[in-house]
Amino acid sequence: MSLTGSGAEPDKRGLRRRVLAGRNGFPEDDVQRAAAVLAARAQELGELSGARTVAAYVSVGDEPGTLPLLDALHARGVRVLLPVLLDDNDLDWGAYRGPGSLADVRRPGRMTLREPHGPRLGPDAVLDAGAVLLPGLAVDDRGMRLGRGGGSYDRVLARLARADVRPFLVVLLYDDEIVPRVPEEAHDRPVHAVVTPSGVRRFRTPPTPPPVV
């Protein structure tokens, strides 16, 4: 039975703690090697590598690395959009133009993020993306994703739903972060695919319901 409403969030917090504890202390060399493998695996997805615009993010710390994938997409002429965190936890976007286009941004009480410097394109820029790379901590056999809990990407997905825009949704994870069940809430949406160092797994996602007004 799926978990919804107030009971799901405490279970999500417990799963987040377990995943983050598992990631803690990954050797940097292992993180970098996995990032290179993930980039190669992810490009097996034609919906991602063949998109004209991809909204993505810059991994930090021991997250599954995204920079090799960002560079590969950029080199192929794909327009890569990266998030800029706003004060209300919504996301603006900027264009990725290579590693030199990133700046470390420190905000009180938060981890240091790497964000694109240059013109801001507005929160609606994500509507142009044919594929969206979502950060995550786990995904289950239905494609339900566990995020970090900040709500920024819930807003992105709600914005896409309101505009009736349906990009390909994909998450990068380590192999042991595919779990039997992710607790879900009413606003959660499944992804179309997960990429791990072992390979790509696609999910049969149901149609996106209309947004709650």
Rank of each mutant, 00 (worst) to 15 (best):
G5P: 00
G7K: 13
A8I: 11
E9Q: 14
E9V: 05
K12Y: 12
R13A: 11
R13D: 10
R16M: 04
A21W: 03
G22H: 06
G22D: 02
R23G: 11
R23L: 15
R23I: 14
G25D: 09
D30L: 11
D30R: 13
A39L: 08
A40K: 15
L48A: 03
G50L: 08
A51G: 14
A51P: 04
A55W: 12
Y57V: 03
G61M: 05
P64Q: 04
P64T: 04
T66H: 09
L69E: 01
L70T: 03
L70N: 02
L70D: 01
H74R: 13
H74Q: 15
R79P: 04
V84D: 04
N89D: 10
N89A: 11
D90Y: 01
D90C: 03
L91T: 10
G100A: 04
S101E: 06
L102E: 06
A103W: 04
D104N: 11
R106M: 03
R106Y: 00
R107A: 04
P108G: 14
P108T: 13
P108H: 09
T112I: 11
L113V: 12
P123I: 07
A129K: 09
A129G: 13
G130K: 12
L133I: 14
L134M: 07
P135K: 05
V139I: 06
R142M: 11
M144C: 07
M144W: 10
G147A: 00
G150Q: 06
G150C: 08
Y153W: 14
R155E: 02
R155K: 12
A158T: 12
A163I: 07
R166E: 08
F168L: 13
V170G: 02
D176M: 05
D176T: 10
E177A: 02
P180F: 12
P180T: 09
R181T: 15
V182D: 14
P183V: 08
P183I: 05
E185Q: 15
H187R: 11
R189F: 01
H192M: 14
V195T: 06
P197W: 10
S198D: 09
V200T: 09
V200F: 02
R201W: 03
R201P: 04
R202D: 06
F203K: 02
F203R: 04
R204M: 07
P210I: 05
